[in-house]
Computed example of a mutant assay.
Amino acid sequence: MKMNFDIKVVEASLEEICEHSLFLKSINYTRLLRYLVDKAIKNEDVKEFTIGYDLLSKNYLDDKNDGAVRSQMYKLRKKLTAYYADKSVQHDVIFEIKKGQYNLSFLSPKEFNQDNENGSSISIPLKKIKIAFLFLPILLIGFWSFVNFFNQPSSLWKNYFKSNSNNLVVISDQYVVMSEGLDGKSHATLFGNINSDADLINFKNKNKQGKFDNTDFTLMSKMAPYGTKILNDWFNKYNSNFALRLESTLTMDDIKNNNVVFIGQFKTMNISSALFLKDSHVFSIYKDGFIYKKDDKEKEYNTIFNSKSKIEYAMVSCKWLDSGKNSFYFVSNNDIGVLATLGLFTDNKWLSEFYERLPEKVIGFNALFEVSGLQRTNMGCKLVELEVLN
C-alpha cells in the first residue's frame, strides 16, 4: 500500500497515541502498535506467525493453536476504537486494523468517517432481538465462566495478580570497582566479595595500598532481559504488572511493601542474601551450587562441566510472608538455570502438577532443580530436592 502521509505526521500521531492514558501503561500494546506502524511505513506485509516470531520470540509455524497474537490484536483494535472515540483528541491520521487482518492502514479522518457511515446494515425482526437480549446475559455469564475456568493462574501466583497488588521484580547486578592496574591506569574490575558500597569501604580499609573507587554503573548478564521478558508476558496474561529494581539499589522497604520476584545469582546478592533460604532447614549455598543436608544424608549439588554437556543447579524459593506479601526467588549462578526454572513456573500445566505435590497448609517451599543439556539449553530441567515449609 502506498504511503499517502508524511512520515513525520504518522510518527507524531503514533507518539500521541502512546502517551494517551489508554496506552501509557500498556507496554505490550504500544510495542505491538509501533511494530505494525513501522511495517506499514515500510510497506511490509505482516502475518500472525511473523508477529509471534518478532515480538513473542516464538515461531507460530510450530504451534498453530497459539492464540496470543490474535488475542493481542483483538485488544489492540479495542484500544484504538476507544482512543478514536475520545472527542477531545484531534487526529491528523487514523491508524486502522480491519477485523481479521494484521496489516495496519493509514486513513484520513474523512476516509475513516466515510467507512463508518457506509458500513452495511442487517435488518433483524424486533421479536428476535428481544429474545436474543433475554438470553444474551446468560450466554455471556456462561462464556465468561468457561474462559475463567481454564485461564486461572496458579495459587502460587494469586497474590501477584490481585487488582491492588504491588509487585516488584528484582534483578541481580554485579558491583563494579575502579582499581589501579600495574600500568598505573584505572580499570573497571569485578570482585567476588564486593557487592555494595559498604563492602567496598571494608575492602579499602583492609587494602590501603591500592587505589579503589566506586562507579556509577553495574553489570548484568543476559538473564536480565530474557528473564524480564518471560515475567512480563506472564504478568500481562493476567492483566497485572510490576516495577523493576536492581539488587544494588534494593531496600528493606521495597521488600516489605511489595510482592517480590528475585531473578539472578546468589554470589551478587546484597540485601537479598539475608532473606534467601532464611527459613530452610536443609539447604545452604555451596561454591557454585547448593548443599542438601537432612538427618544423616548430605549431598553436594555443584555445577559440573564436561566436553558434551553442562549440569548446573537452580533454586526456586517461595514464601508467603506474615505481612500478606509473597516472595519468589529464582536463583542460579548461571543464566540458563534461572531461565529454565522461570519457564516452568510460568507454565500452568506444570504448575498444576507441582502444586498437587504440596500439602494443604504450607507457607512456602524450597525447590532444587537440575538443569542440563547440550550447548547450554534447558532441554533438561528436573526437580531433584523439595523442602516444604509449614
Results as ranks from 00 to 15, higher is better:
residue 6 D to N: 12
residue 6 D to H: 08
residue 8 K to D: 15
residue 10 V to S: 02
residue 14 L to A: 13
residue 19 E to A: 13
residue 20 H to V: 13
residue 26 S to P: 03
residue 30 T to E: 04
residue 49 F to K: 14
residue 49 F to N: 14
residue 56 L to V: 00
residue 60 Y to W: 15
residue 60 Y to G: 15
residue 69 V to S: 01
residue 84 Y to R: 01
residue 85 A to K: 11
residue 85 A to S: 10
residue 86 D to E: 09
residue 96 E to M: 14
residue 98 K to Y: 07
residue 107 L to I: 01
residue 107 L to E: 02
residue 112 F to S: 08
residue 112 F to E: 04
residue 113 N to C: 06
residue 118 N to D: 02
residue 119 G to A: 09
residue 119 G to T: 11
residue 127 K to Y: 09
residue 131 I to Q: 15
residue 132 A to Q: 04
residue 135 F to C: 09
residue 135 F to D: 12
residue 136 L to P: 03
residue 141 I to L: 13
residue 142 G to W: 00
residue 143 F to M: 15
residue 146 F to D: 11
residue 146 F to P: 05
residue 151 N to K: 10
residue 151 N to V: 07
residue 154 S to C: 05
residue 159 N to A: 06
residue 160 Y to A: 15
residue 170 V to C: 08
residue 172 S to V: 06
residue 177 V to A: 06
residue 179 S to E: 12
residue 181 G to E: 13
residue 181 G to N: 15
residue 184 G to R: 07
residue 184 G to P: 05
residue 188 A to G: 12
residue 190 L to H: 09
residue 201 I to M: 11
residue 204 K to M: 11
residue 211 K to C: 05
residue 211 K to V: 10
residue 213 D to N: 13
residue 214 N to H: 08
residue 214 N to F: 03
residue 215 T to V: 11
residue 216 D to A: 11
residue 223 M to Y: 14
residue 226 Y to V: 14
residue 231 L to H: 02
residue 233 D to I: 07
residue 235 F to R: 00
residue 235 F to H: 00
residue 237 K to M: 07
residue 244 L to E: 08
residue 248 S to P: 00
residue 250 L to C: 12
residue 250 L to A: 07
residue 263 I to T: 07
residue 265 Q to A: 09
residue 275 L to E: 14
residue 276 F to E: 06
residue 283 F to I: 03
residue 285 I to L: 11
residue 291 I to Q: 00
residue 295 D to Y: 00
residue 296 D to I: 00
residue 296 D to T: 00
residue 297 K to Q: 05
residue 307 S to W: 07
residue 310 K to P: 06
residue 312 E to A: 11
residue 318 C to R: 13
residue 322 D to F: 01
residue 326 N to G: 05
residue 327 S to T: 10
residue 334 N to H: 06
residue 341 T to V: 13
residue 342 L to G: 05
residue 342 L to N: 05
residue 344 L to Q: 15
residue 350 W to A: 12
residue 354 F to Y: 10
residue 354 F to G: 05
residue 368 L to D: 04
residue 373 G to S: 08
residue 374 L to I: 15
residue 375 Q to A: 12
residue 375 Q to T: 08
residue 376 R to W: 05
residue 376 R to T: 09
residue 385 E to Y: 07
residue 386 L to P: 05
